[in-house]
């Protein structure tokens, strides 16, 4: 790590250095791993769709699966009585930078068998799309929205895929991507201008704007009723 000698503010501005090659970033060490029962079963059942299996630090098992079949594989992992990963601990993504593919990470835990498994899907930056697991685990609803918001990965089949942490009309991109600068893409002046020019309607999603616009209320107005007109705003 010859370029790690930068210090102080220089290092803060430059951010983390990308590692030398994609392989070292994507893979942990250790091939003498003890076999994980679920991985063995996955291999037997899905064959080609299970790309690789790694054991990281302290025996944490990671299995790379085909992104196109991820939903099917995860559903099987959740429902098969021998595995029964009914708890989705975490769902997140990792960007290694430098145009390398993004990883979507599912951290599963089986309360029945006391077993953990990390499932990863590799998505090329040109096609950041994967099937949503919201129908399998409701907890994925917000977690997928967060990944979409911060990484720009689209989850097909998600019922309400919109930004969650950043404002809905945020135009600077997806903050946790490595090509996103720490202070944002816009200048400070532009950011302030945008913040000040927001209108009331910007704080509501279209669904919410419909509430209170009941046809019957509009009917009252047509009748010349004494209903204050501001009430349905």
């Amino acid at each position: 790590m010859a370029d790690e000698t930068r210090s102080g503010l220089d290092a803060v501005e430059e951010g983390p250095a990308a590692s030398e090659d994609a392989e070292s970033a994507a893979s942990g060490a250790g091939t003498l791993a003890p076999e994980h029962p679920s991985v063995k079963a996955l291999r037997a059942r899905f064959g080609e769709a299970i790309h690789s299996h790694e054991v990281g630090c302290r025996g944490q098992h990671v299995v790379f699966v085909d992104a196109a079949r991820s939903r099917e594989i995860l559903e099987w992992l959740r429902d098969d009585p021998d595995h029964h990963y009914q708890f989705l601990s975490d769902l997140t993504a990792v960007d290694y930078g430098g145009g390398r593919p993004l990883h979507v990470v599912y951290q599963l835990f089986s309360m029945t068998h006391h077993r953990s498994l990390r499932v990863k899907c590799v998505l090329p930056v040109t096609a950041l799309e994967i099937d949503s697991v919201e129908p399998l685990w409701k907890t994925a609803d917000w977690l997928e929205r967060e990944v979409y918001d911060l990484f720009g990965i689209r989850f097909n089949g998600h019922p309400d895929l919109r930004r969650i942490l950043m404002p809905e009309n945020y135009a600077e991109g997806h903050p946790l991507r490595k090509d996103f600068p720490l202070r944002g893409r816009f200048s400070r002046a532009e950011q302030t201008r945008r913040a000040l020019s927001q209108e009331v309607a910007d704080f509501y999603i279209p669904e919410e704007m419909e509430i209170g616009r009941d046809p019957q209320v509009l009917g009252h107005e047509q009748d010349g009723d004494a209903l204050p007109s501001g009430e349905n705003a």
């Binding site: 983390p16 893979s27 942990g28 630090c57 944490q60 601990s89």
Partner: peptide, 26 residues
């Protein structure tokens, strides 16, 4: 180089920390 997912029981629930390293100091 590697990644690690670790969780503890926080006062609010299961607090998981996932750290990914490429061999550097960050």
């Amino acid at each position: 180089v590697g990644d690690s997912w670790f969780s503890v029981e926080a006062s609010k629930g299961e607090l998981g920390m996932y750290v990914v390293s490429d061999g550097g100091t960050k």
